[in-house]
Design a protein around this nucleic acid. Structure first.
Lengths: 203, 203
DNA sequence: CCCCCATTGTGAAATAGTTCACAATGCGGA
DNA sequence: TCCGCATTGTGAACTATTTCACAATGGGGG
């Protein structure tokens, strides 16, 4: 498959959100652009990498385009996700509704801390992280969320990778080393604030 | 000032992290690149937009480059930050150490929910969001973090903007409309998972 | 049935970002 | 002092992404 840029994928994700909320049966690239904060040409170009889904003069069928984008993003299948790190960030993520809505099901939570192990979080019992490998052997997951302290993140990731996890969403503020067939996305909130600081400093 | 790309600013932020951990007195672009997951040419180019801070044959002085980057990013001054939304995400953010370490001080927390108002969070009392404008009049903030439900986010942001807030870090999964002199950065975790889903679907 | 109009799909042009490659140069050692 | 080497700083080349602009076309109205 032709290499598609990350920004295109992120925009598809945004378009999908608006399609799911749309009430009319069709939508034009211009309307989608207005909602998603981009241009109509960008919308059409993004979609054109994957096929031609619209009708000239009319726009796109909302249900069809929704289905197509969900399919492109691989959202039709649903994912089992394990969460490592039952700190406050982990707690926020477990109850975050957006994940379940989009087909990402957190199926287990792990921590090191004996005070947390055994407690119930949103219907799940926090398990000792020492069971990570054996649990994943029984019930494999493609995606893991890492919300541990910076110090333990790389070690946890190594264990996840050995257990067959192929994609990691990382909230620990460190870059992670993984083999090339594993995808990591790091969300670093301090870094986001720093870009805001830069824009405040330069006006 | 010449327009600097967002990716350059984000990389500077990453370099800064490693500089703060470095133990040797000097560092080369190659070493910084290795740590930050980029190339030495990229490091030098990023820095060259702001000046020439290195010594040929030797590299960069760690303390000096640290200071320079902190200065470029506007981190020397320290920021007062207000947080709106005392849900789980808000709770995770309040105690997030990375913010304070980098000079971002959360000075107030607001919520709508009378059950939360008055409770103590990390040394701060959650205040009724109805006091937002009057509080900001007394003690202005440049930065706000919005961690409310999607429905209330735009309304809260309008009030923040009227109260003089110039930069917003948004965790609500909606795009926000603000005047052009206000900077918004939206962190959308479901979207990050969707990019991972895409990469799993296309291998 | 045919024309008109809104809107798509897409090459081509423009812009933005990254990598290359090498002259410039500061330092350490002889 | 002078040489050699490591490493910077930076135009120029390259690659990626966005925007432009317009021919193609489907549908609705007369």
């Amino acid at each position: 498959m032709r290499k598609i840029s990350d920004s295109t994928i992120r925009r598809l994700s945004v378009y999908l959100r608006f399609l799911e909320q749309a009430k009319s049966p069709t939508i034009s690239s211009g309307e989608l652009a207005r909602l998603g904060g981009t241009t109509s040409a960008q919308v059409r170009k993004d979609l054109s990498f994957f096929g031609s889904f619209g009708k000239r003069g009319l726009g796109y069928s909302v249900p069809e385009l929704t289905r197509r984008i969900r399919d492109i993003l691989g959202l039709e299948r649903g994912y089992r996700v394990v969460l490592v790190g039952a700190g406050r960030m982990g707690g926020a993520l477990v109850q975050y509704h957006g994940f379940r809505q989009r087909g990402f099901h957190i199926t287990a939570i792990y921590d090191q801390d004996s005070r947390k192990i055994g407690s119930r979080w949103n219907g799940l019992v926090v398990r000792d992280v020492k069971h990570l490998e054996t649990d994943l052997k029984k019930d494999p997951s493609d995606i893991a969320i890492v919300a541990t302290p910076a110090e333990s993140a790389q070690h946890v990731v190594d264990r996840l990778v050995r257990s067959g996890v192929k994609a990691i969403l990382n909230f620990a503020p460190v870059p992670l080393n993984v083999p090339p067939d594993v995808e990591v996305k790091t969300v670093n909130m301090a870094l986001e604030l720093e870009t805001l600081s830069y824009s405040l400093a330069n006006r």
